[in-house]
């Protein structure tokens, strides 16, 4: 499966927990040790095993648009990009 990751803008997070309930890999949790500027416990990515696939389901349900989703570039396209770069050089 594709590798991915997310970046959570914790200052925007209102701690609604909806992202934690929809993540298919179960790698989002609430950071109960932290408080953000709004006074909420923000969501945090806990993914030491790199299970996140960049499916973006968390970002679709996040009401506060806190989550930016990254995913690895699909292989064929990556090869093409390398070709273009090497020809360019």
């Amino acid at each position: 499966m594709a590798q991915g990751t997310i970046v959570i803008d914790q200052d925007r997070c209102k701690g609604c927990e909806l992202c934690t309930t929809v993540c298919p890999q179960g790698v989002i949790a609430m950071d109960m040790m932290a408080l953000n500027a709004k006074g909420y416990h923000p969501a945090v990515l806990q993914d030491p095993q790199h299970h996140c696939t960049g499916c973006a389901i968390c970002a679709v349900i996040c009401p506060d648009v806190c989550i930016t989703v990254y995913r690895e570039i699909p292989q064929p396209r990556k090869n093409k990009l390398e070709e273009v770069t090497s020809h360019g050089a």
Binding site: Q3, T5, H50, A56, V60, V69, Y70, E72
Partner: peptide, 14 residues
């Protein structure tokens, strides 16, 4: 697994 750094990934949702 080879860990791909975030700089080498594409943004799929923003």
């Amino acid at each position: 697994i080879d860990i791909i750094p975030i700089e080498h990934m594409q943004v799929v949702y923003d």
